[in-house]
């Protein structure tokens, strides 16, 4: 059985009874596209929508969608945390703040429930995986990372290019002050790779500690714009919460009340980039968040 999770044709390997219980039932087929959608009205997630409340255009062509789940889809939450000095105490992860940092991660893990998974990557010039995606509850021990350069672009791309298995919703939450010094990749490289990412990228932008010296307190404008673009294109959001668990609560609230739409592309050329546009047809003003497209290979 092959399923394409937003453009990534992958083998759906159902291996156990537990798997069957945990995963929503996906339609079998070779060309199925899965789109995770969050619908907000005045900032509040909107439950209770049905398939015909959605209109989905794939490269401008109307598609028949199936609403396969209104239930909570298992989450893979990848935290990507700038471990440098400019990020708030809660996410700093230094020796001094190790206790608070560990507590914050525990608080985050408490917001999840099995079979959700939590992963933690921290970066300065080094990108380190403190916790590979693991089913909650989890224990985190974070060693200090030298406060050298900040490879934000590289860390974001590394997270974006590690897809989750089908049947799970992948959320990347990036904690940063919006500064990058020393990445191999440029902001332009990052945005060019968004099409290859199956996750919704949320960005918690720390503006309180601000950069010192020549750069403004709100980060490098080019980098910040890149983060906004990545969040928008993947169906995520840029938040300005300084408190880690509070930010995560907000992110998870959106994700938990999301919808999973599937469709087999009809009437559109398969090869290349597909732009997706999802709207809600019910009366009213809705903020619909979903990835903006996928690459068919």
């Amino acid at each position: 059985m092959v399923i394409a999770a937003a453009g990534f044709p992958v083998l759906l390997n159902v291996t156990s009874a537990e798997d069957l219980q945990q995963r929503p039932v996906f339609r079998a087929g070779t060309d199925v596209i899965v789109v995770h959608v969050t619908v907000l009205q005045k900032g509040t997630p909107q439950p209770g929508l049905i398939a015909r409340d959605f209109e989905l255009l794939d490269n401008g062509v109307h598609q028949e969608v199936e609403l396969i789940s209104q239930q909570r889809v298992p989450l893979d939450v990848s935290l990507v945390v700038d471990a440098g000095w400019r990020v708030t105490d809660e996410v700093r992860g230094t020796t001094i703040d190790e206790k608070r940092f560990t507590e914050s991660i525990r608080d985050v893990a408490n917001l999840l429930r099995p079979p959700d998974r939590l992963g933690l990557v921290r970066f300065r010039s080094d990108i380190r995986e403190d916790l590979p995606l693991s089913t909650v509850p989890v224990e985190v021990h974070a060693e200090p990372i030298p406060a050298y350069w900040s490879a934000l672009d590289d860390a974001v791309v590394q997270a974006m290019l590690r897809p989750s298995p089908p049947g799970r919703r992948h959320i990347i939450v990036v904690f940063t002050d919006g500064l990058d010094v020393g990445s191999v990749l440029t902001p332009l490289d990052v945005t060019s790779l968004v099409a290859r990412c199956d996750a919704a990228v949320y960005v918690v932008l720390d503006r309180h500690r601000g950069a010192r010296g020549m750069l403004s307190s709100s980060g490098n404008p080019v980098v910040v714009q890149m983060l906004r673009d990545v969040a928008r294109e993947t169906g995520g959001e840029v938040l300005s919460e300084s408190d880690v668990p509070a930010a995560l609560k907000k992110v998870l609230s959106s994700a938990e009340h999301g919808y999973v739409l599937t469709y087999v592309p009809q009437g559109a050329t398969k090869a290349g980039w597909h732009e997706i546009k999802v709207t809600v047809t019910r009366p009213g003003s809705f903020d619909v968040r979903a990835r903006r497209g996928y690459v068919w290979k």
Binding site: A151, V157, P163, V184, S192, R196
Partner: peptide, 18 residues
């Protein structure tokens, strides 16, 4: 890390995400 990231980006652009 540097060559890994650069090569991974190159492969992903070619659709070799896995």
């Amino acid at each position: 890390q540097s060559a890994t990231t650069a090569l991974a980006a190159l492969l992903a652009r070619d659709g070799r995400v896995a």
